[in-house]
């Protein structure tokens, strides 16, 4: 367990370690301390997460199948070569990106607005805060069934409402080729709202009130206060939650699958569905693992770019 030596050029806003303290004994003690703090988390992760994952990744280079007494051998990158020519998989990749990016962005924008409202001292705050968490209180199995009822073309409250307002009331939300994807995106946003809102709300709570007051004294308006005080303080948290939301959204397919089964005409077919079909239905676990590895590589690359840009901005802010 070697904790890396704290660098003198502290990269993020002021590391706690001051150069003057860098002395051998002190550092060793610090390392031991850090090890002790990290160990309890590390242990279950190694046993129950790293180990299965390493096995899973290793499968991507074999021709393993889920059969009784399987014997499989190392096939190098064959699975990846085959995957490169799988047009179904890559087609769904585009839909997966639209889905994950739009859900993540909408979640962030809507949750930021909601968190601000919940944090601005309106009446009935404790009630509204609980109401905002309702999507969390419904198990996923039920979520899909409820939304199917709401979207129902001839017996759903959504169309009934539109009809009452004199708008077209015969839209077949989940089955129309043009509305299916937006409709499932709305459900995706709904499901993830509490998560993002609570996270941002906690972040807002962390901003010392004095900062806002100081800004107000300087005569800053609401928008100026947001850009000058709220947003910079919230930045690390926004970066964290959007990355995770993106991963989760990209990774989820069961909600959409229950809503539309990938239809109509494949308009809501997400890439993870292919991994599932290949792994469990075709029992080609090796090939499926290759799909998993590709998904990981793509998503991690995207996030690395995103987080790097966040990181660089942080530095710029600090220097400026």
């Amino acid at each position: 367990m070697t904790a890396p030596a704290p660098t003198t050029t502290a990269s993020a806003p002021g590391g706690p370690v001051r150069p003057t303290r860098r002395r051998g004994g002190m550092e060793r003690a610090r390392r031991r301390e850090a090890a002790a703090l990290v160990m309890p988390s590390l242990l279950p992760i190694l046993v129950l997460s790293v180990a299965p994952l390493v096995m899973g990744i290793a499968l991507a280079f074999t021709d393993a199948r889920l059969v009784r007494h399987p014997d499989y051998e190392f096939v190098g990158v064959d699975n990846f070569v085959r995957l490169a020519g799988n047009s179904f998989f890559w087609d769904s990749f585009r839909i997966g990106m639209i889905w994950a990016v739009s859900v993540t962005i909408l979640q962030l924008v809507l949750a930021l607005g909601l968190a601000q409202l919940l944090n601005s001292g309106l009446r009935l705050q404790s009630l509204t805060r609980v109401l905002a968490l309702i999507p969390w209180a419904m198990p996923p199995v039920v979520v899909a069934i409820m939304w199917k009822m709401i979207y129902s073309p001839n017996a759903g409250p959504l169309n009934a409402l539109l009809g009452a307002l004199g708008l077209p009331d015969d839209i077949n939300w989940l089955a129309d080729f043009s509305t299916a994807l937006p409709a499932v995106i709305v459900v995706g946003v709904w499901v993830g709202m509490p998560q993002t809102t609570v996270t941002l709300l906690a972040g807002l709570q962390q901003i010392p009130g004095e900062l806002h007051e100081a800004a107000s004294m300087d005569g800053a308006g609401a928008w100026r206060r947001f850009t000058a005080v709220t947003w910079p303080s919230l930045r690390p948290i926004v970066a964290s939650i959007t990355s995770l939301n993106f991963i989760w959204n990209f990774n989820s397919f069961s909600l959409v699958y229950v809503l539309t089964e990938g239809g109509p005409g494949g308009r809501t077919m997400l890439p993870m569905l292919f991994t599932y079909l290949e792994a469990f239905k075709n029992r080609n676990i090796g090939y499926a693992a290759a799909m998993g590895v590709v998904l990981v590589v793509v998503v991690v690359l995207l996030l690395a770019v995103y987080l790097r840009s966040q990181f660089r901005d942080d530095r710029a802010v600090q220097k400026g």
């Binding site: 089964e261 990938g262 109509p264 290949e278 239905k281």
Partner: peptide
């Protein structure tokens, strides 16, 4: 796999 990724979308 054919059913979910080929046949159902095509029939729809």
């Amino acid at each position: 796999q054919w059913k979910d990724t080929v046949a159902t979308p095509a029939y729809q």
